[in-house]
Computed example of a mutant assay.
Amino acid sequence: MVVAPPSRAARALLWPVLCAGLLAACSKPAPAPEPLRSVRTMVVAEGRAGGTHEYAGEVRARVESRLGFRVGGKIVRRAVDLGDSVKAGALLAQLDPQDLRLSQDSARAALGSAQAQHDLAAADFKRYQELLAQGFISAAELERREATLKAARATLEQARAQVAVQGNQAAYASLVADASGVITAVEAEPGQVVAAGAPVVRLAHDGPRDVVFSVPEDQQAWVRSFEGKPGALKVRLWGADDVLPATVREVAAATDASTRTFLVKADIGRAPVKLGLTATAQIERPAADGVIKLPLAAVFESGGRSAVWVLDAQTMKVAAQPVQLAGADGNEVVIAAGLKPGAEVVTAGVHVLSPGQTVRRYLPAQTTAAR
């Protein structure tokens, strides 16, 4: 059976249908509707803020010195190890004293030469005084001998001072403890050549102790307000139940470059605690009524400012509301401005929302099943 080709009129009718099909196949599919997200919310209400702020710290000595030799040289002996207790005047390390002794011998020889020149100048001056009295020389000649004697005397004094300096230099070959304490670090070993002033050991002096901890930037001014007030802080050593009173002694003037926190030193006096122990510093914040608090998860950053999502119960749409924070209270943040009691705020799912997005309240599974 032979099928006749479609007529010209049929082809004219078929062509638009084929084009429409091709265009439909090439066009992009319609975007899927945005899912209706479920969010947790809470109604803002005034509450009570306060409680105890705790900071992890460490027990340190009030004075901790990095000791080094006052002259350069090669270390031939180190007499202490990490953790050793030493008394004032105890030997810590020793340099090779050979070059220093040679310098001391050279200074002594220079002193002997200066002494001889001075004695000769003094004898000449005495003889020329007698010659002047007999009229054999002029006064000018005696004055020259007197000037020579004065120069010899100055050279002698210089030589004596140089001997004293070289004696001190030789004594500096021995590094001794300038106070009683504990060696907390060793920074050089025997055989090492060190420059003058290079740290060799670190000595924590016996005496008052500090608990050192860091506070965030928003709490620096508040902690500084306790400075100099005895017993404003409480310190509890980890693994112990005893609580020690402490006084804020010093708050750093600038933040740490890496942690952006302020270093605080709290004085605990001469409490019998070991260096390096971990401690918890506790500060009581006075309780205040009429404070709005939200979970930390409810706050996000928008345009460089803190904000929360506020839900409109009529339209079920969310809108970003900038807020001002007054600090933290445990796992909650204290809102200083931007919210009023009665507002409904999203507390979970804040990072997947956009302004004007429609949401629904999250209902636990048992509540949905009961309905």
Rank of each mutant, 00 (worst) to 15 (best):
W238R: 09
G239M: 08
L18H: 06
P190S: 04
F125S: 07
L102V: 15
P190M: 03
E143G: 14
Q162I: 09
S106W: 09
S106Q: 12
A110S: 09
P286N: 05
G51K: 05
Q104Y: 14
P216S: 14
L120G: 07
A320F: 12
E146I: 13
V251Q: 02
V59L: 01
K234Y: 10
N331V: 15
V308D: 07
K87I: 00
T259D: 06
A32R: 08
S302L: 06
Y55K: 04
I292T: 08
R127A: 12
V76N: 05
K340L: 11
L311N: 00
L22P: 04
P16E: 02
W15C: 10
V212L: 06
L311M: 05
E217M: 10
D241L: 14
R60P: 04
V211F: 11
E157P: 07
G181N: 07
R11L: 05
P272F: 07
E227W: 10
P286F: 01
G197V: 00
A154T: 10
G349W: 11
A195F: 10
A152K: 00
V39H: 00
S27K: 13
E141T: 13
A24V: 07
L296N: 03
F300Q: 03
Q192W: 14
A252C: 05
L263M: 12
Q104M: 14
D119H: 11
S138H: 02
